[in-house]
C-alpha cells in the first residue's frame, strides 16, 4: 500500500502546478501599486489591500466590459446549445443523409484558423452595421462553439436509453408526458455539461473580441484587460489588471468546483470516444 501514497504525493505536485499561478495572481491583485515599482519585487504584498478591486469596479471600462462578457457569453452559449441540441438529437437518433457531412464539417470548423476570418469579418460586419455590437461577437462565438457542443451532446444523447420513452407510453403516459418525465431528465445533464464547456469557450475568446470591437459597447473583459490603465499615469496598472483578472476567474473556479465530474466526463466523451 506504500505505492498508493506515492501516487497521492504525485497528485499533490500536480495540484501545486495547477494552483500556484492562481496564488501569484491573488497576491498581485492585493498589492499596493507602490510594490510594483520597487527595485526588488517580492512574491507577497508588503501590505494586503482590497483597494485594487474597489478601483477596478469604479472604472466603467471594466464594469461595461464585465457586463458585455457575461451577456455575450450567456447569449452565445444559449443559442449554441439550442442549435446543437437539434443536431445532436438527429445524429444520435435518426438515420439520414448528411449526417457524416455535418460531423465532418464540425471537425473542419474545430480546426479552422480563426485569425483567417478576422479580416473578412471585420469588413463584412462594418458593411452590415454589426461591427462593435454584441451581435457581431455572438455570431462567431456561436459558430465556433457549435462543433464542441454538437460532439459533446451527441455523445451524451447516444447513451440515453430511448426505448424508455416507448415503455412509458405503453404504461399509459402520453407522448408529451413520456418526453417530459422520462427523456428530459435523462438528457438534461448532457445539455447542462455542454453549456458549461461552451460557456468556457465564449468566456475565453480574445481574438474576435479585439478585432470586432472598438469601444466599450461590446468590448469584453479579455480585450479590455489589454487596454487597462492604472488609477493615474504614475501608478503601475499591474495590480488593477490582476484584480480584474481575479474577477473573471471567479466564475471559472465556481463552475469547476461545482461540476468537476461533469466537465471531465464532457471533455473526455465528446473529444475522444465520440
Amino acid at each position: 500500500m506504500k505505492t498508493s501514497r506515492w501516487w497521492t504525493v504525485a497528485g499533490l505536485v500536480i495540484v501545486a502546478y495547477s494552483l500556484f499561478p492562481l496564488v501569484w495572481m491573488l497576491s498581485l491583485s492585493m498589492k499596493p501599486p507602490s510594490d510594483i515599482v520597487s527595485g526588488e519585487p517580492q512574491f507577497l504584498p508588503t501590505t494586503w489591500t482590497f483597494d485594487n478591486f474597489t478601483e477596478v469596479f469604479s472604472q466603467s471600462l471594466f464594469t461595461r466590459a464585465l457586463i458585455n462578457s457575461i451577456g455575450i457569453a450567456l447569449i452565445a452559449t444559449l443559442f449554441a446549445v439550442v442549435v446543437a441540441m437539434f443536431a445532436a438529437y438527429a445524429i444520435a437518433r435518426l438515420d439520414f443523409r448528411g449526417k457524416r457531412l455535418l460531423l465532418s464539417l464540425a471537425l473542419g470548423i474545430a480546426m479552422f484558423p480563426q485569425a483567417a476570418l478576422v479580416g473578412p469579418l471585420f469588413n463584412m460586419w462594418r458593411g452590415l452595421g454589426i461591427y462593435d455590437t454584441w451581435l457581431g461577437l455572438i455570431i462567431p462565438y456561436l459558430t465556433f462553439a457549435l462543433p464542441l457542443s454538437i460532439w459533446t451532446m451527441s455523445a451524451f444523447f447516444r447513451q440515453i436509453p430511448w426505448e424508455m420513452e416507448q415503455a412509458a407510453q405503453v404504461d399509459g403516459a402520453t407522448a408529451w408526458q413520456a418526453f417530459r418525465k422520462v427523456i428530459v431528465p435523462l438528457a438534461a445533464p448532457g445539455v447542462f455539461t455542454t453549456a458549461i464547456l461552451t460557456f468556457f469557450f465564449c468566456w475565453n475568446d480574445f481574438l474576435f473580441a479585439i478585432s470586432l470591437t472598438s469601444t466599450d459597447a461590446a468590448r469584453t473583459v479579455p480585450a479590455a484587460l489589454a487596454f487597462f490603465q492604472g488609477a493615474s499615469q504614475f501608478e503601475s496598472p499591474v495590480p488593477y489588471i490582476m484584480a480584474a483578472a481575479v474577477v473573471v476567474t471567479i466564475p471559472v473556479v465556481i463552475l469547476v468546483l461545482a461540476f468537476q465530474r461533469r466537465i471531465v466526463a464532457g471533455l473526455t466523451s465528446g473529444a475522444v470516444k465520440g
Partner: peptide
C-alpha cells in the same frame, strides 16, 4: 486513489482559465 476528486478539480482550473489571464499572470 486518495484525492482523485480534488486532483481533477485542480487540474481543470488551468483548462478553464482565460488565456489572456494566464498570459498576464
Amino acid at each position: 486513489i486518495r484525492g482523485r476528486g480534488p486532483l481533477r478539480t485542480a487540474i481543470l482550473i488551468p483548462y478553464g482559465i482565460v488565456t489572456v489571464v494566464s498570459a498576464f499572470i
